[in-house]
Design a protein around this nucleic acid. Structure first.
Lengths: 151, 151
DNA sequence: GCATTTAGTTAAGTAACTATACTTTTTTTA
DNA sequence: TAAAAAAAGTATAGTTACTTAACTAAATGC
């Protein structure tokens, strides 16, 4: 009845299982702090926040909350921590005195670039083991996956 | 100098960026509890633990810690919680009285199967949007990715 | 037969949140 | 235009999911 997976070849579910394994690996990685550039060790949340601000900067707290998919309260805590580490700075919004604009300091930009570099190197290593067409297909799949998870 | 990414075509880094987006989506998903089968709401850690035990069961606590990539202490806490929810049960190891074997109860197996079904349905939806060759390439990529992250 | 290793537990501490209540502005609307 | 509603950010207490370190008890290794 609801065991329709048994009507398909045996290996059909192995992809699903590997995807599960990937999720577990990411869970593990997303737990320990790492060094990026001249900044000390940054927790995953911290570096993701730096990434979400970006080198162009001037992002509202609420915009940041939306980008990171967390509450405003969580963003306040993160930014306070990152400000203490001198990776970001708060500045008043010129037109709306409720708003606060966040941007990266030089040290923050340095961490941002170092993090981008890690991503880039990682992806390059993957690229070495795959053909150009395969990479293309992979990126298409990642994109589809992203659209799915949007919901 | 270290901005070698600029020597490559513009879209070279978009894959890396999409992979980053995927990680953010997973972070978000891996935070809120969901229902699986007849069990009440289960946190991501809880259902991952159920998954790691599997329907065959009789897994040592330490083996579980290794599978989940967490410490023994964390496993003790998880299993205590899952035992209270009646999804797993502890039994003494027949030969080694230090060891404790964990297995799923009927309710636990039910949650396991419901979770597998979610994975399966999800993967099937992805399959609908891709050709068979594309799926094959995708799985190969996921596998490479897994091997990378192993370190 | 004692030292070491291995299995598991306990307790305290941390990171990363959420929920809720609050203040201060801005916007809406009646 | 005054009052109500909405929006931006903060503060605080609580939760989840861990880790670390110290512990007990049983097994293994000379």
């Amino acid at each position: 009845m609801n065991k329709n997976k048994n009507q398909l070849p045996n290996n059909t579910n192995s992809g699903s299982r590997n995807l599960g394994r990937l999720i577990m690996q990411l869970r593990r990685l997303e737990r320990k702090p790492h060094h990026f550039g001249t900044a000390g060790p940054l927790t995953p949340s911290e570096i993701h926040t730096v990434e979400a601000i970006g080198t162009e900067g001037d992002v509202l707290m609420s915009e940041l909350a939306m980008r990171l998919g967390i509450t405003k309260g969580a963003v306040t805590q993160l930014i306070t921590r990152l400000e203490a580490k001198e990776l970001v700075k708060r500045s008043p919004h010129p037109n709306d005195s409720r708003g606060i604009l966040i941007s990266l300091t030089e040290k923050g930009k340095d961490a941002y670039i170092a993090h981008e570099e890690v991503h880039f190197q990682f992806y390059n290593q993957l690229r070495l083991q795959l053909s150009e067409q395969e990479i293309e297909v992979f990126e298409k799949c990642i994109d589809k996956l992203n659209n799915f998870l949007q919901k």
